[in-house]
Design a binder for these strands. Structure first.
Lengths: 210, 210
DNA sequence: ACCTGAACACCGTTCAAGT
DNA sequence: ACCTGAACACCGTTCAAGT
């Protein structure tokens, strides 16, 4: 078979297969040949639909960002909208942690990510933040959201108790892995609430035109 | 030459060469063969000193973390110590941004990173935070510090003005790259100060044993 | 003990050849 | 237009052979 009458591949089928593979086995398991095999074709076939492997992974990342709920910006004040959006973003990345390194470097040319950035920035400006502050807040949200999604804090500690013997305060660090969901989500919520409360005071103190 | 009387390589020489290569050309440029060439040997020689490439990169990451200044925990109250430490950590990673993906997943088995975690956690406990809260605060700091170091927020936006034409609020996003240092450092400082202020109120409100 | 060449099982990507 | 095999220039890692 050289060319079937109906194309075997579409961009969408490739993105779905890549997304599933990333979720199932991690970013490192994704090779062009491997992905092609899962789709029933040979490696080079994918280059008829995407020009590089990076472009495929970008599309996977953007599909996940597209699921983030930004509707709160139309219905709530900036503070509550930011909180709801951040939790939705956090949840989307928690469901697909392996893709995070791909989107951690910014929106690039990914349309859904650019649209989300546009909505968030627009809402902050409308709320009275200066351009500089709105940019800072956008950056801060990305730091917190991708920083927390990039890898569990709790799972970053080995479960091997021996490892911590020489560290006086870490003698219970090996237990962190067992509670990682609680630790990581608690830290994220604490950080988000603390930040939003502090920013709110800042805006009130300096007036709506700061 | 099969074996010189004096070993050509040491772990330290390898780590220094790897660190310089990471800084100069990025993580992706580091291959075992490439690194060996820079050291005047062949690829397999490195396996006499490290058992995997990942172990070499771990050593590079730990050498950078070892430069972070934790002395403030001995001389300042928890809030100011955390602030000074976070800025030192941030500065160390800003000087070596390409290595950040290696350390973003936690301390693992890297001794300098574990020692740093031990110091920070111990200081928080001593300040009166509960174990759960101290863990949350440690996680939060990691989220902010690695999240901001992983990639510039400003540089995540392309410098191509055309890209933003269809996004009503991003029409000046192409200018971000030119101010990236100011944008990124400003966002980090704003986030850190806001967090520490908020956490301080929380500790005062709930008493020293919370 | 430590460096070497050869080898293994992979990579991303290109391209002429097929239909 | 789109899939293919063959090829190119790479990977990380192993291992027997050398001194």
């Amino acid at each position: 078979m050289a060319r079937p009458r109906q194309s075997l591949l579409t961009r969408q089928r490739i993105v779905e297969a890549a997304s599933a593979l990333v979720d199932r086995e991690g970013l490192e398991a994704v090779s062009v040949r491997r992905l092609a095999t899962e789709l029933g074709v040979r490696g080079p076939s994918l280059y008829n639909h995407f020009s590089t492997k990076a472009e495929i992974l970008d599309a996977v990342a953007d599909a996940i960002v597209a699921q983030v709920d930004v509707s709160a910006f139309a219905t709530h004040d900036w503070r509550e909208a930011l909180r709801l959006w951040a939790h939705s973003y956090h949840a989307a990345l928690s469901a697909h942690p392996n893709i995070v390194p791909v989107l951690a470097h910014g929106p690039g040319r990914r349309p859904a990510t650019l649209a989300m950035a546009d909505t968030v920035y627009g809402a902050l400006i409308k709320a009275g933040w200066s351009e500089a502050r709105a940019t800072h807040i956008g950056a801060l949200m990305r730091y917190l959201i991708t920083g927390s999604a990039l890898g569990s804090f709790a799972l970053g500690f080995s479960g091997d108790p021996q490892l911590y013997e020489q560290y006086p305060h870490l003698h219970r660090a090996h237990l962190l892995a067992g509670q990682h969901k609680c630790v990581d989500d608690g830290a994220f919520a604490l950080g988000l609430d603390t930040l939003l409360n502090g920013l709110d005071s800042l805006l009130l103190k300096n007036g709506p035109n700061r």
